[in-house]
């Protein structure tokens, strides 16, 4: 590839990148550096003095069973959000893709929750699951089940998973539809002529061809479950009951803003950064591979 033609100018490019760069340095790089620096410090209860303690915060954190609980909660939660959200979206996308009449109508009715804020999703489902007046607990009580997500940790998890999946469904759906539409019809027709029935065609031809989309969505969904569902948890369970829905991001928020434990919160931030960086690298590695392929 030859070089793109460019302008010659000494000052202009710097003026152009300056706003983006200043905001990046002030609000991204500097705070991230601060988090890194503070993760090596311990502050006394009144904030009068700080002491440099090397990796003590990390050691303390990683030997704290509560932190491991939070890791486990995050892992379980992310798994279910990604799995349920993607499975349902793939199912409905496969259905909508084949519809000839009204396909657009169906799509419109299925994609609008993209625009809904996670906290709105949370409040809507919180009302539906309200133990005193909610519809679903009412129906469940008809079959003899008492729903109370304020006391039962499994039910609390189900609530936050449903609200999170409901909001993310549309995103997955949009990408699966696009992936399905990119598959050449001739492949499907050739398989049909060879006598493959619809289910076989789906699993043996369509599904493998969708794997890049699925992988991409998997990363996006995990990132979503890690970070963006903070609002869902904050509005519904606030980490409870016990610590059963306290994800890593919720814990950073709680320890930093409510507990005011600077060192621990910073150490947690640093560990989260490592996770995000890993996920981003995995994603980009994969995208690069796909381009070559």
């Amino acid at each position: 590839m030859h070089d793109k033609s460019v302008f010659q100018h000494r000052l202009l490019p710097y003026v152009l990148v300056a706003p983006q760069l200043i905001i990046t340095l002030v609000f991204f790089i500097w705070p991230a550096g601060q988090a890194l620096y503070q993760s090596f410090l311990v502050e006394d209860a009144f904030g009068f003095s700080t002491e440099f303690v090397w990796f003590e915060n990390f050691i303390y954190l990683l030997s704290d069973p509560e932190y491991w609980t939070s890791i486990r909660v995050t892992a379980v939660f992310s798994f279910w959000v990604a799995f349920v959200g993607m499975a349902l979206a793939l199912l409905l996308a496969a259905m909508a893709d084949k519809v000839i009449r009204g396909s657009r109508f169906y799509q419109t009715l299925l994609i609008w929750p993209y625009a809904v804020a996670p906290v709105v999703a949370a409040v809507l489902w919180l009302m539906l699951f309200s133990p005193s007046i909610g519809l679903l607990p009412f129906w469940l009580s008809k079959v003899g089940y008492q729903w109370n997500h304020l006391a039962n940790s499994v039910e609390a998890n189900i609530l936050v998973i449903i609200a999170s999946v409901w909001k993310q469904f549309s995103y997955n759906f949009i990408f699966f539809i696009a992936g399905l539409q990119a598959i050449p019809r001739s492949l499907i027709e050739a398989a049909a002529i060879d006598g493959a029935r619809p289910f076989r065609r789906f699993w043996q031809i369509v599904f493998p061809l969708l794997s890049p989309t699925a992988f991409f969505l998997l990363v996006v969904n995990v990132v979503y479950a890690f970070f963006e569902t903070f609002a869902v948890i904050h509005a519904t369970t606030q980490g409870g009951p016990g610590n059963s829905t306290k994800t890593l991001v919720y814990k950073v928020f709680e320890d930093g803003f409510i507990g005011l434990d600077l060192g621990s919160s910073s150490a947690q931030s640093v560990l989260l950064m490592v996770i995000v960086i890993t996920l981003t690298v995995v994603q980009f590695r994969y995208v690069e591979k796909k381009v070559q392929y």
Binding site: F28, A32, F226, V252, G256, S265, S269, L272, M273
Partner: peptide, 10 residues
């Protein structure tokens, strides 16, 4: 790689 959520306090 640095969403707000990971650097809340600073």
């Amino acid at each position: 790689m640095l969403p707000v959520e990971v650097r809340i306090l600073p």
